[in-house]
């Protein structure tokens, strides 16, 4: 090999690149690996499930096999009224997030509590499970942890969904998949910046807010408002509906694309949505030929727009 005379150079190249890899990959990985989860990180991974980007369980990013977040006001076994809690329901065959599959991901304290008190290692994807986010104490320090209530209290996914009802069920997990697929994050960041943004977009996230989430979709090119706390600024489902159907209905200067196609072919009553007629009437309204804009159709409860609105409203 004629590389012989370049042996010193090749060795130096290998050494330099390895050193660079060591500093930029190995050392930070120790650091990042030791980050413990905040309660938000536990809630996020239980809301979004295994992965919100492309994965073999959801090849076309339709929001399949995702958990549901429900607001539970009654005990699913006794129907007794109880203090409302958010429960995270994984129907049978929905993939668990990293924190359930590998408790180490949750960070020191949370992992021990989740396994010992939360019994998360007894959960099975084949049968489905229901989880709660709790806080507990380990070695005298407080940590959030995940409780597998299917094991500790015998709540089954079906019973929880039935007692909660559709109105208290959020498809935020499927909605994040739609958020990724539709490329919302090319303009809307999910990262208020550390040196400003407090007043307008709210506080930046904490170091431990991301354990188990994938993809994190921070966004890099902000052409529109940051959405990390949008559900706290604006919690109106009706406003979201109008804004997604045609952003110019509520904000004439908006450059956001229309997401009317996420309604699908039919509305909540099962009637066909006539998009062409709607657009024609909207143009008339914009030109001042109509006093009121056309009505935005109500969406079906299993439509993609429902998932997306549930996701956006869940960003508190």
């Amino acid at each position: 090999m004629a590389f012989r005379e370049y042996r010193i150079g090749a060795v130096m190249f290998g050494a330099a690149l390895s050193l660079s890899m060591f500093i930029t990959l190995v050392v930070p990985s120790f650091n990042i690996f030791s980050v413990g989860s905040t309660a938000l990180a536990l809630e996020k991974q239980l809301t979004y499930g295994f992965n919100s980007g492309w994965n073999p369980d959801d090849m076309f990013l339709t929001g399949a096999n995702k958990p549901l977040k429900v607001l539970l006001k009654q005990d699913p076994q006794t129907d007794a009224v109880m203090e409302p809690v958010h429960a995270y329901v994984f129907p049978a065959n929905a993939r668990f997030p990293s924190g359930i599959l590998h408790p180490k991901v949750l960070g020191a304290g949370s992992d021990v509590l989740s396994v010992e008190q939360g019994k998360i290692n007894e959960a099975s994807e084949a049968q489905g499970a229901v989880f709660l986010v709790r806080s507990g104490e380990h070695n005298g320090k407080a940590y959030p942890y995940i409780e597998n209530v299917s094991a500790t209290r015998g709540w089954s996914p079906d019973a929880v969904l039935k007692v909660a009802g559709d109105a208290n069920t959020s498809h935020a997990g499927a909605g994040k998949t739609i958020f990724v697929r539709e490329g919302c994050w090319w303009c809307h960041t999910l990262l208020p910046e550390q040196t400003q943004d407090f007043q307008y977009f709210g506080a930046p996230p904490y170091l431990g807010d991301f354990n188990g989430e994938s993809p994190t979709t921070f966004g890099s090119d902000r052409k529109a408002p940051d959405l990390l706390h949008v559900g706290s600024r604006n919690s109106s489902k009706e406003w979201m509906m109008m804004h997604f159907f045609n952003p110019r209905l509520v904000q004439p200067h908006s450059i956001m694309p229309r997401f009317d196609y996420l309604w699908g072919k039919t509305d909540a009553n099962g009637d066909q949505i006539d998009y062409a007629a709607w657009r024609k009437e909207f143009v008339e309204y914009r030109n001042g030929e109509r006093v009121t804009p056309p009505e935005v159709p109500n969406y079906r409860s299993d439509s993609e727009i429902r998932y997306l609105i549930d996701f956006v409203l869940n960003l508190k």
């Binding site: 990985s29 990042i32 690996f33 980050v35 990180a41 991974q45 295994f50 992965n51 994965n55 997030p97 990293s98 991901v105 170091l207 991301f210 354990n211 188990g212 989430e213 994938s214 993809p215 994190t216 921070f218």
Partner: peptide, 8 residues
């Protein structure tokens, strides 16, 4: 399937 800050 690395997640969180590692992924970011």
């Amino acid at each position: 399937h690395l997640t969180g800050l590692t992924e970011a």
